[in-house]
Design a protein around this nucleic acid. Structure first.
Lengths: 129, 129
DNA sequence: ATTAGTGTACTAGCATGTTGTTACAGCCGG
DNA sequence: CCGGCTGTAACAACATGCTAGTACACTAAT
């Protein structure tokens, strides 16, 4: 489970952890029953305070993705994969929707918007290799 | 010049004003030499504090889009249209780029991402009508 | 000159995010 | 049992960012 956290981003660290954990589980990198990194370990790895990780884990627990096993760790629930796949789709769709909404709101011509989208789609797929 | 400000949004009000002013000028709704609404008038219309509008105007002045005429108001510069069209493209492109970057990062299949984009593109164009 | 309209500077309040500290409750392997 | 590991809670400290309140400087019209 490799997380890419940007301390300089405007989105809070704990939110970055939440969404990237969701992506990780949705992609099958973590399976139900498995224990995720402890708050202290992940905090050390990300060079972040344990409390910040704990906050992210709590949010994931509220969503039914993790369950706390006191003294052991946080366990991936059996429903986690389903929930995460659904949430992943929601997150990505909403981001795209917001970006396109702003594009339309900018009074750019629809064909120009479409052109921009196609360019960027190629761009990310290209870097994907 | 009709601005649509959402106080509940996570993006600060002054930033919303900045980008929407840019869009407005880029679309030709405001012409060089024209005076934009005073900080107090726009603030009253948007139900926000005058200082919030002033902050937005200052940012637009730093970018060379507006120029302050003390005692008169803020004037749209002659270079404003060019600058705003360029900035508009940058803003829209970056938002789209970030959304797609996250989509790829989510480990969603490329064809699924493309499908989502097409759906949302139809959606916004449909609502355009 | 007075008045009313501009933008602007300074300050304070408030919310948020992050870190830090400390302490506690539960599990597990020696 | 005991030491070391879990998560959790409460609290303070600090930085940052956004907004509100107030007062000031300038311009134009009367």
């Amino acid at each position: 489970m490799l997380l890419d956290i940007r301390s300089d981003s405007s989105i809070p660290i704990y939110e970055q952890i939440v969404s990237q954990m969701i992506f990780s589980i949705a992609s099958g990198a973590d399976v139900p029953g498995e224990l995720v990194l402890s708050v202290r370990d992940l905090a050390f790895q990300l060079r972040v305070h344990p409390n910040t990780v704990a906050r992210a884990y709590q949010e994931l627990e509220r969503d039914g993705i993790l369950v706390a096993r006191r003294g052991k760790g946080m366990e991936v629930t059996t429903e986690a994969p389903v929930i995460c796949k659904s949430k992943r789709q929601d997150i990505v769709r909403n981001r795209i929707r917001e970006a396109l909404r702003e594009a339309v709101n900018s009074a750019l011509q629809p064909d120009e918007v479409e052109k921009l989208v196609k360019e960027e789609l190629h761009r990310v797929n290209g870097h994907r290799k």
